[in-house]
Amino acid sequence: MPVTVVRLNLVDPAATPGSLSGRYRAALEMAAYADERGISTVQTEEHHGSTDGWLPAPLVFAGAVLGATRRITVTVSALIAPLYDPLRLAEDIAVLDLVSGGRLVTVAGIGYRPEEYAAHGRDWARRGALQDEALETLLAAWTGEPFGYRGRTVRVTPRPSTRPHPPLLVGGGSRAAARRAARLGLPFFPSAHLPELEAYYHARRAEYGTEGWCLMPPETTALLHVAEDPDRVWAEYGRHLLHEARTYASWQPEGQRSAVRSRAQDTAALREEGVYRVVTPEECVALASQGLTSLVLHPLCGGMPVEEGRRSLRLFAERVLPRLKD
Rank of each mutant, 00 (worst) to 15 (best):
M216I: 04
E145C: 05
E211G: 11
F61R: 00
S312H: 02
F189L: 02
E207W: 15
A108L: 04
S50I: 00
P187F: 15
E307V: 03
G63Q: 12
A64Y: 15
R257W: 13
E198A: 14
L292G: 02
G274K: 06
H165I: 07
V60A: 13
R127Q: 09
E29C: 03
S21W: 04
L135K: 06
A68P: 01
H243A: 00
S262R: 05
G67F: 14
E198H: 02
G53Q: 02
A199N: 08
R246Q: 13
L324C: 09
L287A: 14
V42K: 07
R314F: 04
S77C: 10
L215P: 00
A182G: 04
S191V: 08
A268T: 09
L224F: 06
T267C: 01
V5I: 15
E36N: 05
V105C: 02
E133P: 06
S161A: 15
T69R: 03
E46I: 03
I39H: 11
E283Y: 10
Y276W: 12
V95P: 00
V260Q: 09
P114F: 10
V156E: 12
E91I: 11
P13S: 01
A134R: 00
M304C: 02
R179E: 12
L83T: 13
L215N: 08
T69D: 08
D231N: 11
T143I: 10
R152Q: 12
G22L: 01
L130F: 05
H202M: 07
D123S: 10
L313R: 07
R152E: 14
V320D: 08
R246L: 06
V76A: 09
R310Y: 00
M1P: 02
A108G: 12
K325Q: 12
E219I: 06
V42Y: 15
G148T: 10
G18N: 04
Y24D: 00
F147R: 01
A268H: 05
G18S: 11
A118E: 14
A259K: 04
V275W: 12
Y149D: 08
E45A: 15
Y112C: 02
L270F: 05
H225W: 05
H47I: 01
E115M: 07
T51V: 12
V278G: 05
